[in-house]
Design a protein around this nucleic acid. Structure first.
Lengths: 233, 233
DNA sequence: ATAATAAATGTAATAATTACATTTATTATT
DNA sequence: AATAATAAATGTAATTATTACATTTATTAT
């Protein structure tokens, strides 16, 4: 900020206090539907209500660090893809205190999360279309995060963070169909995706969902570029 | 947030306090270059340093309202286009206090701002390429806001907020050339822009910059759609 | 009447997107 | 051993969007 410190008219003294929290919108993909990790409050008030996972920001960490701390606490995972969504600052959004929240959305490989930790925290994976009512403005946060995910997916190869290291083309097509909530033509989808040159094909087939089996691919981070990734349809 | 209030183990009590500010990155366009409104601190410390315009968020307002309040204070304008950029929360970003800032960028019609108010606040319009060093992380905020503006301009018809109600096609082309920092082909630019069908042509010519004169257009808010507005360059 | 200036315009070549149906590899069944 | 079943893999033609590129037009000043 811009004004004097350690002065009589200090802008830093006696400011009306606002609490700052971080809430995480955690997406996962189980090869069928997009899912969200939410948890059930085990203490009063609002015991039994579903909520996003959050925390107040601490003195010694920035918002990003706070988000990653929460993600590690609840899933055991580090190096998770996480980006700031937006802030939520309505005056009365939290009836208990004047508290603004920085929403962060994260994409994780659902099969890699530590199930014991998740259970210990009373957290559950919900399909997005079966998501229960959440506390405060958390449903709005989820809606905003989904919009952001769609917007990003149109223009950049996001979503690989939701897939295992090796994945098949039908798998990633299903993911995109889930994100956009529409069927995609497999010939056009594959043509587009492969033309972007950031997938490396392996000679290994995954036969878990067909007799023929589908080749496994991996994301080639070397080759990821700015080239736009525009799905208009 | 998710935890108990008015309880012994309340999450709302004794939280380490964080101040929350809003800083505004205010863009304008003078028909030649993109400009930014910054102001010169008139009090110690850092007297004479250039700074974005900001304020602490108040108890009775959300971040958006705080931003609009600042914009009104400094320019006299209401109903300004303003969007949240991102938060800045590095632990030591402000040596005077633990203070996070919510960056908001705004687009204003430079000719409409109240010059007396602007002067009274010690504010000046700088061309982006002549921008001085700003306090704290404000230069980073400007950089991020410019990136965002570019990104948005590629995909949506942003930028009309920077132009007067009636503007010419050469004028808007110059604006886009400033945003993208590259020359655009006028035939292709006009073809694309007009094909999107959200400009209404008037029969009035603006002769301020040529003998022939250029027709004035206005933005047709009715017709603005989602259609993408992609300038690949 | 002429020169000067910036605005307005068109077309052909290339690239990207869309729409659409058949063949292939494999396993399970008979 | 042959057949049925299943999902994966593939190609092409039509349409649409983008790019590259130069001349004409309207007006004012000389």
């Amino acid at each position: 900020m811009e004004f004097a410190k350690n002065q009589q008219n200090s802008w830093y003294e006696n400011k009306e206090q606002v609490l700052v929290a971080v809430d995480c919108i955690i997406f996962g993909f189980d090869n069928e539907t997009l899912k969200l990790l939410v948890f059930k409050r085990e203490i009063q008030p609002l015991k039994g209500s579903w909520s996003l996972i959050g925390s107040f920001i601490r003195q010694n960490e920035n918002a990003n660090q706070a988000g990653l701390r929460i993600l590690k606490d609840i899933t055991g995972l580090e190096n998770i893809f996480m980006e700031e969504l937006k802030t939520y600052s309505a005056v009365d959004r939290d009836p208990g205190a004047r508290c603004i929240s920085i929403g962060q959305y994260a994409l994780i490989r659902i099969d890699e999360n530590n199930k014991e930790l998740v259970n210990k925290h009373g957290a559950f994976w919900f399909s997005l279309d079966e998501l229960p009512e959440l506390v405060l403005d958390h449903n709005q946060m989820v809606k905003d995060a989904l919009d952001r995910l769609r917007e990003k997916a149109r223009f950049s190869p996001i979503g690989f963070e939701l897939l295992p290291k090796y994945f098949t083309l039908p798998q990633i097509q299903t993911l995109y169909e889930q994100i956009f909530q529409k069927r995609l033509d497999s010939r056009n989808f594959r043509k587009k995706l492969l033309s972007l040159n950031f997938l490396k094909k392996t000679e290994i087939k995954d036969k878990s969902s067909s007799k023929k089996g589908a080749y496994l691919y991996e994301f080639d981070y070397e080759k990821e570029t700015d080239q736009s990734f525009i799905f208009k349809g």
